[in-house]
């Protein structure tokens, strides 16, 4: 692939970077990244990866845009309320960069469909907001050997880790299984500072680009934690866990299955 004049201009600030250059930009243009969840984390990731010229971007989400999403899901605008999130996200990404291919999956990932989707991509961004999906993505990426970025945000805290399945610490190395239902924060303890999604989702996009280009040090075996109130940023070294039920010495998980969803519904919550 060689860059057109327009592409050279569009991506000039990448191309002049020694670590990217024309070759790196061509690499990005021929890369495929899947974003699962077009919400708080997926929004900035999708926008930046589109702008960066990642050639094929897939987005998975089954939801429609809700007014309460707009506080943090910056890929969706006020007039998108009621529109499928994947459609709304696709429109913004195309507007930023008509140069790339967007594939949309208006669905929820489950044990049946996830492998067929992720297998087509070089890197996966977990932008989901629930634990069953996070465990499913971890397990599916492990079985299909697709690297991914895991992230979570809550209140004023965010964290992320990059996983090269079978090589580096996975989500189940840290957390064996989803938290028990009665341990999950009640609605009054949940909530999130909107901009936090932008910070952490952008870091996930950074990891994707670094992985695709093969530059720098990935956040592998390392959890980056960010506290917006104190502005403490920490890198916590997390070694692989020999007792990991997925990638440990005696794995108990040998096939994909859906974990139970634990729901706290704000509208019906008595908290």
């Amino acid at each position: 692939m060689s860059l057109t004049e327009q592409q050279i201009e569009r991506y000039s600030r990448h191309i002049i970077l020694e670590q990217v250059g024309g070759t790196g930009q061509e690499k990005l243009l021929s890369s495929k990244v899947l974003i699962i969840g077009a919400g708080g984390l997926g929004a900035p990731a999708g926008l930046y990866l589109a702008a960066a010229g990642v050639g094929t971007i897939g987005i998975v989400d089954s939801d429609k845009v809700d007014l309460s999403n707009l506080q943090r899901q910056i890929i969706h605008h006020t007039n998108d309320v009621g529109v499928e999130k994947v459609k709304s996200a696709e429109n913004k990404m195309r507007a930023i960069n008509p140069d790339i291919t967007i594939r949309t999956y208006q669905t929820r990932v489950n044990a049946e469909n996830i492998s067929d989707i992720i297998r087509q991509y070089d890197f996966v961004i977990d932008g989901t907001d629930n634990f069953p999906a996070k465990f499913l993505i971890n397990d599916a990426c492990y079985f299909n050997k697709v690297p991914f970025s895991h992230a979570g945000i809550l209140r004023f805290h965010g964290q992320l880790i990059t996983v090269l399945p079978g090589e580096t610490t996975c989500y189940r190395c840290i957390f064996n299984s989803p938290p028990p239902a009665n341990a999950v924060p009640s609605c009054s303890q949940a909530g999130v500072l909107g901009v936090l999604a932008g910070v952490i989702g952008s870091l996930q996009a950074t990891e994707a680009i670094k992985y695709l280009l093969g530059i720098g040090d990935l956040l592998t075996n390392t959890l980056l934690t960010y506290d917006a109130l104190t502005m403490d940023v920490r890198k916590v070294r997390l070694n692989r866990n020999a007792n990991c039920p997925l990638c440990g010495e005696n794995p108990q998980i040998t096939e994909l299955k859906d974990e139970k969803q634990v729901v706290c519904d704000l509208k019906n919550c008595k908290c």
Binding site: G37, G39, G40, L41, R72, G127, T128, D129, N130, F131, K134, G152, I153, L154, R155, H157, G158, Q159, I174, F175, N176, P179, V184, P185, C187, A190, G191, V192, L196, A197, L223, V236, L238, N243, Q261, V262, V263, C264, D265, L266, C269
Partner: peptide, 29 residues
């Protein structure tokens, strides 16, 4: 291991990290 929390006694200079479960900030967690 969670089952070892009760029986594990801490020693001088131990390094402990508490790592929290975090979803996506949605109320559906």
């Amino acid at each position: 291991k969670r089952t070892k929390f009760e029986e594990t006694t801490l020693k001088d200079d131990d390094k402990v990290e508490f790592i929290y479960f975090m979803g996506g900030g949605s109320v559906v967690n």
